[in-house]
């Protein structure tokens, strides 16, 4: 743990995941709220809406997953740590 790069990369990984979770969380909340609104207005379209919602949620989640992949790269495959 003497290497300062290791300490910085652990901090970087934590920062990447925490801020990477913020945006997608807000976005998913908005998406679910909009879908709930739409289902309440038009219950007969619930099937199509929830299918599209799931696809959209997975798309949004991808951004958080990218941050997770960056964090994993920092922790396990850091090119500056030997």
């Amino acid at each position: 743990m003497d290497n300062p790069i290791e300490i910085v990369s652990i901090l970087g990984a934590a920062l990447a995941v925490s801020f990477g979770a913020l945006g997608p969380a807000l976005a998913e909340g908005r998406a679910v709220a909009a879908a709930m609104d739409a289902i309440a207005r038009q219950p007969e379209a619930a099937g199509t809406l929830s299918r599209t919602l799931f696809v959209g949620l997975a798309m949004i989640e991808t951004m958080a997953i990218y941050c997770l992949v960056v964090a994993v790269l920092l922790l396990f495959a850091n090119p500056f740590v030997h």
Partner: peptide
Amino acid sequence: FSLSVRLFGNIMS
């Protein structure tokens, strides 16, 4: 690239 990383990240996590 994003197609592969999306699947990898989700399942790996």
